[in-house]
C-alpha cells in the first residue's frame, strides 16, 4: 500500500493546460501544410504524381491540397524540387465543411462553433459513441489517449459512452468498409436526435489510403451527414481535441 502512495507521488500531475497554454508539440510534427504556388515552375506536377491518395491537384487555379485526403506522409515535400510545400507544426486542422479542407494559398477555414441552440444542448456535455468502421487502430488509439490524464477529456464535458442510446453523436474512424456499412447506419439510427457526426482521420473523411478500393465507401460522408472533419493519418490528439473544442465554441475561431 505504501508503494501505491509513493508511486502516486512519483507520477505527479500530468494534465496539460490546454487550451489556455500553448501546447508542446514535436518539432517534426506534420501539422498544417503551407503551399507556395508562386514557386511552382510551369507544368511541374511532381508533387501530384507522388501523392499516394491524389490529394494534390494542379489546375487553372494553381496548386491545391485536399487535407481530407492528405496522409501527411511527406512524399510531396521530399519530391518537390522548389520547396513549394512544407508542413508546419500547427496542429489546428479541423473544419466544418468538406470543401474547407481543400487548401490553396490562403488560410485554412477552421471549424466554426455549432449554432446557439446546438451549443446550448451540447456545449457543456457531449457524449459520443465511437465507431471504428475499418480504422487501423491508430486513430482509435489517439482518441483513447484523450481520456488519459494528459488530456483529461472529461474536464471539457466530453465523454465516450458505451451505448448509442446514451450518445449525442458518433465519432467515426476508418473508411467505412462495406462490411461495417450496415452496423454504422444502425448505430447512427440508434442515437437520439438531434445528433452530431464527427469524422476523424483521412480514412473517415475520404477513404484514406483505401480511397476508391471497392471494399470501402470512401469515408463517413458517403453514408451520413458529417458535422466536423478532423484530418490526419492519424490526427495528433491535440488536433482532435482542438476540433472538438472548436465545435463546442470552447476555442474561438479566428475570423476567416
Amino acid at each position: 500500500m505504501i508503494n501505491v502512495l509513493l508511486a502516486r507521488l512519483r507520477q505527479g500531475h500530468r494534465t496539460i493546460r490546454f487550451p489556455t497554454d500553448k501546447p508542446n508539440v514535436p518539432d517534426r510534427l506534420r501539422g498544417r501544410p503551407v503551399i507556395d504556388p508562386a514557386k511552382c515552375p510551369p507544368d511541374c506536377r511532381v508533387c501530384a504524381d507522388v501523392c499516394p491518395t491524389d490529394a494534390i491537384t494542379l489546375d487553372s487555379k494553381g496548386l491545391r491540397l485536399d487535407l481530407g485526403r492528405c496522409l501527411f506522409c511527406t512524399e510531396c515535400v521530399q519530391a518537390c524540387p522548389q520547396d513549394a510545400i512544407r508542413f508546419t507544426t500547427d496542429h489546428r486542422l479541423a473544419t466544418r465543411a468538406r470543401e474547407d479542407l481543400v487548401m490553396g494559398e490562403g488560410e485554412l477555414k477552421l471549424a466554426q462553433a455549432l449554432d446557439e441552440k446546438a451549443k446550448r444542448l451540447f456545449g457543456h456535455s457531449l457524449k459520443l459513441r465511437q465507431v471504428s468502421a475499418g480504422g487501423c487502430n491508430a486513430c482509435e488509439a489517439d482518441i483513447n489517449v484523450l481520456s488519459t490524464v494528459v488530456f483529461d477529456l472529461g474536464r471539457f464535458g466530453i465523454q465516450f459512452v458505451a451505448s448509442p442510446r446514451h450518445a449525442d453523436g458518433l465519432l467515426i474512424t476508418g473508411p467505412v468498409t462495406r462490411n461495417m456499412d450496415f452496423a454504422l447506419r444502425e448505430t447512427y439510427a440508434a442515437v437520439p436526435a438531434p445528433k452530431l457526426v464527427i469524422a476523424v482521420g483521412a480514412c473517415a473523411i475520404a477513404g484514406g489510403p483505401y480511397i476508391h478500393q471497392p471494399e470501402v465507401r470512401n469515408g463517413a460522408a458517403s453514408c451520413l451527414p458529417v458535422d466536423l472533419f478532423i484530418p490526419g493519418c492519424p490526427p495528433h490528439p491535440l488536433t482532435i481535441l482542438d476540433g472538438l473544442l472548436r465545435l463546442l465554441g470552447r476555442i474561438e475561431s479566428r475570423p476567416a
Partner: peptide, 24 residues
Amino acid sequence: YQHRGVERMLIGGPDKRGIPAIET
C-alpha cells in the same frame, strides 16, 4: 468487418499506394 482489400490492392505494385496501405 475491417476488410479493406489490402492484399488485392498491393497486386501490380510496388507503387505509391503500397507503403500507406502497409503502414495502415
